[in-house]
């Protein structure tokens, strides 16, 4: 059995087993949030970890996916579930159009351009009050899946868990496909990749579109789970959180993105005991992780284990 299947199996086992230890519905809610946030982070990992392109506007796509769930039923009369693929397609299309010009930029310039895109999305959501409901947010109708209405944390735990499994499976497959190896090559050196015949622009754009689709699906699921969405979902701080998740978990690692997301969702819940100091403690912990596990948690621990056993 190869490492890809082992990763999937471990993740599936974790999803299947931990509900046995949940004392209340609140834990289902938090875990469901971990899975759906992780799905968004895995998308960003494809772009940042595999293709090596930074994005500070990932939450913009999450917001597009989330608002599609509210605006589709309201203005087009569509069933809310049909808006999930619609939102993903829209985010992919926007990423395709926006990605062409801005992916020509590199490094800090690309960071600033994606940052601008994310802020633009958030601004539109805030200021187009007549359409989006403005800063007070907008309601999302409860979805119906063949007559079943998922309600409460437990239902969404399983839906989001399944979505994450599929997302991780696809991302791992991509990583080990010719496309994934092309991404890895251009990550290391764009010049070298180009000389061996890799269409750099096309591969970068593809990674950008994939990240956007992941983000939009995560945003759509989160919006359905909450039944409500505000422009914060697309905010700059959310984008920064996604980047932090991918970096802290381990840029090169798909499961790393899941671990990073779990950490950033769970820590604020666990740190409420510090009350006034929770943000300071959160910042300190993130710094410690970065200092002692420089390559990220998952690759860092893996290499530590390997050294221990060697």
């Amino acid at each position: 059995m190869n490492a890809r299947w082992a990763t999937l199996l471990i993740l599936a086992a974790v999803i299947a087993v931990i509900p046995w230890f949940f004392p209340s519905g609140y834990y289902f809610r938090v875990a469901a949030l971990v899975w759906v946030t992780a799905l968004g982070a895995v998308g960003l990992q494809v772009l940042m970890g595999q293709a090596g392109q930074v994005s500070l506007g990932h939450a913009g796509f999450v917001g597009i996916g989330a608002y599609a769930m509210a605006l589709g039923p309201k203005y087009l009369g569509l069933p809310v579930l049909a808006c999930l693929p619609l939102g993903a397609a829209l985010a992919g299309l926007i990423a395709f159009l926006v990605g062409r010009p801005i992916l020509r930029l590199k490094g800090h310039y690309l960071a600033v351009a994606t940052l601008g895109f994310g802020i633009l999305v958030a601004m539109v959501l805030v200021s187009e009050i007549a359409v989006t409901g403005g800063p007070d947010g907008i309601r999302i109708p409860r979805p119906e899946i063949f007559g079943w209405r998922p309600r409460g944390g437990e239902a969404w735990y399983w839906i989001n868990g399944a979505a994450l499994l599929i997302g991780v499976w696809l991302a791992l497959n991509l990583q080990h496909s010719p496309s994934g190896r092309a991404l890895a090559a251009l990550h290391d050196s764009e010049v070298a990749a180009r000389t061996i015949g890799i269409d750099v622009a096309r591969h970068k754009l593809r990674a950008f579109v994939i990240a956007a689709v992941y983000g939009a699906v995560a945003g759509g699921l989160m919006a359905m789970m909450n039944g409500f969405v505000t422009p914060d979902a697309a905010g700059f701080l959310q984008s920064v959180e996604y980047v932090t998740m991918v970096v802290i978990g381990g840029l090169a690692s798909v499961p790393g993105a899941v671990v990073g997301a779990a950490l950033l969702v769970l820590l604020p819940q666990a740190l409420t005991v510090f009350h006034d100091y929770e943000h300071a403690v959160l910042g300190l912990l993130i710094m410690l992780f970065m200092i002692f596990l420089r390559v990220g948690i998952v690759p860092g621990l893996a290499s530590l284990l390997r050294r221990r056993s060697a």
Binding site: R29, V30, L33, G137, M222, N226, F228, V229, T230, D232, A233, P268, Q269
Partner: peptide
């Protein structure tokens, strides 16, 4: 001020 966090 975040609606998602408030819900959690």
């Amino acid at each position: 001020g975040d609606a998602n966090r408030a819900r959690t």
